[in-house]
Design a protein around this nucleic acid. Structure first.
Lengths: 102, 102
DNA sequence: GCCTCTCTTTCCATCTTGGAAACTGACTAA
DNA sequence: TTAGTCAGTTTCCAAGATGGAAAGAGAGGC
């Protein structure tokens, strides 16, 4: 019943995360958390969900003696995001077609 | 945390309903149900939700001796749908801005 | 009065989302 | 080496959505 929409990407929080990552090489955990405005635990879980789907890659490394995590979209992630946005556009278009047929 | 997105319209099923109605004067209950592919009860509940939000108007009338229900977007509904689509577009754009700032 | 058609409402089970708090791993400081 | 931080993770739990089946309800038809 989800008309081509990717449920993993459709949830508001993850849609924001994906949209953010779609325009960057990679982004830091804290940066994403502040932009999306969710708690650490929630962001961690969303990134994990995106990771399991193969959409996001997490890179952990130390910087200034502090451990940091960078997230980036995988190729599949970019593709899925683009497809999802396309599905949204199409949702409107197909609605139009259905209307004509009615 | 929902970046300007309208949660009432964001749920896949309701997004499809709204997209469909956005292009028609009005659509029949059964038509919507078949396009969105949900059960009667579910469609009824979604339309009720959209109605409570002031986005959809339901018109009931008899046709060929059968009682039918037509749904249509109210002006507020069309406005909200347009705004929601705009928010989706903007989500991508703002993500870009954030990326630059990073 | 009874039946059918067309939704509605109720009941219920499942899934998702979100935050707080506890926990882990890595590294710094004594 | 032990204690303390920082940066996420995982666990626990509560709340809200969503979906379908089944029972209801209203309007006509027979």
């Amino acid at each position: 019943m989800s008309g081509g929409l990717d449920t993993t990407l459709h949830a508001p929080a993850r849609l924001q995360i994906a949209a953010l990552l779609a325009r960057v090489e990679e982004a830091e955990f804290a940066t994403i958390r502040d932009i999306v405005e969710v708690s650490d635990s929630v962001l961690s879980k969303h990134l994990a969900a995106l990771g399991e789907e193969g959409y996001v890659r997490l890179r952990k490394a130390a910087q200034d003696g502090r451990q940091r995590t960078w997230a980036s979209l995988t190729r599949a992630g970019r593709k899925a995001f683009a497809a999802h946005m396309a599905a949204l556009q199409e949702l409107v278009a197909s609605a139009q077609a259905a209307a004509v047929a009615e």
